[in-house]
Simulated scan of single mutants.
Amino acid sequence: MLYLLVAANPSLLDTAPLDKDPTYKKVISRRVTYPPVSDQHKIALMVYARFTINERGHVEHVKIIRHPTEEVHHKFYDAVVESALKRLPPLNPSYVGHYILPVSFSLRDEHNGQLLIPEDVGYYGEQVNSVMLQPVKVIGYRRYRVQN
């Protein structure tokens, strides 16, 4: 098994043809949203998903990859990314191959306006000739109730 740490800095990576596909871009941008969790459970974090596009253009073998040092499983965030990928319509079969999708869940604090951006420690997982896609950026909001 080959493990490789890949920097997720988009300026260092070439843009994959899939990143430019209008159907992919539209569907991913609409379906990868901040998960419906209460404000006290909202966090900023990175999620990496590995998936394959088969010869018919269908997405398969979706797997969320975690850094070995991460102890907490963020099932709501993982589920949003996994569901969005699994619900992609068939894409152009020319995209056949293995991909890694980084998703950055940032959080804006409505009390002070601060944007909490997750620390990107890079992708740590099996590379398997995969193409690193451009990160999807999602911003959630933490609201505070004013108590009288």
Rank of each mutant, 00 (worst) to 15 (best):
E60N: 14
P135W: 04
L5P: 02
E70F: 15
L133C: 08
R56N: 15
E119S: 12
V128M: 09
L13Y: 08
G122C: 05
I64R: 11
L5M: 08
N129V: 04
D120R: 02
Y141A: 12
H111S: 09
A79C: 03
D78F: 15
K137G: 05
V138E: 06
Y24T: 08
F51D: 02
D120Y: 05
R31K: 11
R143D: 07
V81A: 06
N148D: 14
Y24L: 05
S11F: 10
P90E: 13
K42E: 06
R56E: 15
T52P: 01
D14P: 09
H41W: 09
E126S: 11
Q147D: 02
L4M: 15
A49C: 06
L13K: 10
E60M: 12
A8K: 01
L13E: 14
I139D: 08
I28N: 01
H111F: 03
Q127S: 14
H67T: 07
K137T: 13
V37P: 10
A49E: 00
K75E: 14
P135D: 00
Q40I: 06
V103W: 03
Q40N: 12
V37G: 03
R142Y: 03
I64N: 06
V27K: 04
L91T: 11
H98S: 12
V80Q: 07
I117R: 10
L2Y: 03
R30K: 07
P22N: 05
N92W: 07
V62D: 08
E82R: 08
D120E: 05
M1S: 15
P102E: 06
R108V: 12
E126T: 11
D109K: 04
F51V: 03
P36N: 11
L116E: 11
